[in-house]
Amino acid sequence: MRNVTRTLRVSVAIAATVAAATVTLTGCGSDDKGSSSSNTTVSATAAAPAPTAEALQGVLTAFADPAKPAADKAKLVVDGDKRLGNIDTMNQGLSHYQVGFTVGEIKQDGTKADAKVSVTSPHGTMPDVPMAFQYSDGAWKLSDAGACTILGMARAACQ
């Protein structure tokens, strides 16, 4: 009888261990499918308001304003501090040069947005220039790629 009781206790202990492991693994499985990191992404996505053409145009206009200091312009770009030298070069090149922007079609994907932008300069208009933006620090900013597009036009290309 003692062996039967002992076997029964061991069986119950094994069953409890397996059940606990199953619950733990199920919990891990649900984390992978949508809890921690996915919910963070969904929350960040939900927190990004739809970018308006006016807001994106304002970022572009401020970025190309030759009177605005490079340090101020760097704040308009995601990780813009790494482009300060390029922005200084652009400011020098734009000192007597007027550039305008008209933002057209905008496609948002969470905290990122792509827009077709017409760039107007004394040499004419370039229509449908693809420009990338990112929602960061509570505002829509130029992505690094978007900034590099403008910097390249201003002969201050990113490397």
Results as ranks from 00 to 15, higher is better:
Ser30Lys: 14
Val78Asp: 12
Met131Arg: 01
Val77Ile: 13
Asp144Ser: 09
Asp65Asn: 07
Arg2Phe: 13
Ala147Ser: 11
Leu8Lys: 12
Arg155Asn: 09
Ala47Trp: 03
Gln159Asp: 14
Cys28Pro: 09
Thr125Trp: 00
Gly100Asp: 13
Gln134Cys: 08
Lys141Phe: 02
Ala16Trp: 06
Lys112Glu: 09
Val4Lys: 08
Phe133Glu: 04
Thr61Gly: 04
Asp31Tyr: 11
Gly146Ala: 06
Ser11Thr: 15
Gly104Cys: 04
Gly124Gln: 06
Lys112Tyr: 08
Asp144Leu: 06
Cys158Asp: 10
Ala15Tyr: 08
Ser43Lys: 07
Ala139Leu: 05
Val12Pro: 09
Gly146Lys: 05
Asp72Ala: 13
Thr61Tyr: 06
Ile14Lys: 05
Ala74Cys: 12
Lys33Tyr: 13
Gly104Thr: 07
Ala64Thr: 00
Ala47Gln: 07
Ala145Trp: 09
Cys158Glu: 08
Cys148Asp: 03
Val99Ala: 11
Asp81Tyr: 15
Thr17Arg: 00
Thr7His: 10
Asp88Ala: 14
Ala154Ile: 00
Ala139Asp: 07
Ala62Cys: 02
Thr7Met: 10
Lys82Arg: 15
Asp137Pro: 04
Asp128Ser: 10
Arg83Ile: 04
Asp144Ile: 03
Ser95Gln: 15
Gln92Lys: 15
Gly152Trp: 01
Ala74Lys: 13
Ser38Glu: 12
Ala70Met: 08
Met126Lys: 14
Asn91Ala: 09
Ala71Arg: 10
Ala147Cys: 08
Asp109Lys: 15
Gln92Gly: 14
Gly93Lys: 09
Lys107Gln: 07
Ser37Ile: 12
Asp88Leu: 10
Ala115Gly: 05
Leu84Pro: 07
Val119Asp: 00
Tyr135Met: 08
Met131Thr: 01
Ala55Met: 05
Lys68Gln: 06
Met153Leu: 06
Val10Phe: 11
Ala67Tyr: 00
Val99Tyr: 09
Asp31Met: 14
Asp144Ala: 15
Tyr135Val: 03
Arg2Leu: 12
Ile150Ser: 00
Ala71Cys: 05
Thr89Ile: 11
Gly124His: 10
Ala154Thr: 00
Ala55Val: 07
Ala55Ser: 08
Val119Gln: 02
Val129Leu: 11
Leu60Glu: 00
Val103Asp: 00
Asp128Ile: 01
Ala16Cys: 13
Thr22Leu: 14
Ala15Ile: 08
Gln108Asp: 04
Leu142Val: 05
Val18His: 09
Arg155Pro: 01
Val42His: 06
Lys73Trp: 05
Gln98Ala: 10
Tyr135Thr: 04
Phe101Ala: 09
Gln92Ala: 14
Val103Gln: 02
Val117Lys: 04
Val129Gln: 10
Asp81Gln: 14
Thr41Pro: 01
Asp79Asn: 15
Ala156His: 03
Lys75Ile: 10
Thr45Trp: 05
Thr120Trp: 01
Lys33Glu: 10
Ser118Trp: 01
Arg6Pro: 02
Ala50Gln: 12
